[in-house]
Design a protein around this nucleic acid. Sequence first.
DNA 1: ACGAGCGCCTGTCGGC
DNA 2: TGCCGACAGGCGCTCG
Length: 268
Amino acid sequence: MPELPEVETIVRSLRNKPGILGRRITSAQVLWARTIAVPELDEFTQRISGQTIVAVERRGKFIVIRLSADALLIHLRMSGDIRVESEVEPVQKHDRLLLNFGNCTRLAFNDTRKFGRVWLTPDITTVVGELGPEPFDFELTGDMLFSRLQRSSRCVKTLLLDQSVIAGVGNIYSDEALHRARLHPALSGKQVTLEQSKSLLAAIRETLTEGIARNGASIDWVYRGGDFQNHFRVYQRTGKPCPVCGTKIERRVIGQRSSHFCPHCQPL
DNA sequence: ACGAGCGCCTGTCGGC
DNA sequence: TGCCGACAGGCGCTCG
């Protein structure tokens, strides 16, 4: 489920849930070893035990849980999800990591496809250091996005998915933002003008803002509770009418990811 | 150094 | 009904 709005929704719910901030992690159970990226398994379970949750933040698509000595970073990749529940609840299929708290509650990381990863590190820049700017960072301007797009001949769609260009945008929100900005996904980065870069940044922000306001998008069995999937303009709407002009939405693979666009509103 | 392609995984869906 | 391929909110690695 994981793009910026879905991760932001989860982070906000964790932050607002009583019994998370200030809670002490008493033990950890790793149910799928490869979930833990760093450090080694034994050290991970040993070092996280006894640490207190100080803050819950987001950087790009990473959940950043600040602990008393380390930071716990969680990337949900394609199918990750997080639950907070009583310790008496049964462990669920595809649960990969359980963090037990002292008060009979726990945090469960569930991840069907096993792509998700968890890092425990005192220095988050070792994990998120190469990420591009946050879309809502006020220091990010249309001029800055323009210069980042212009130095590449890759498709603008591919550039939006590159987390070192801008952090947090994934396949849904890139398609939606490009439609809002009336840009064809296969435009090369160096073809995008300054004016187009400015409207693209505005479109990214509007799209992400709507996504957050709707608690993200819920598709298939992955991630519940969002509503943005009912408001897609182009994503997974191949053959259906463009909400602006009625032309049939087309699908095309760009950079090995399916891309959806209106051939009339987004000419090449 | 950059970009394309594959691998990692499980589940669902549509076509035959 | 069952099987098989295509496809799915992501990203790291390798190779040319």
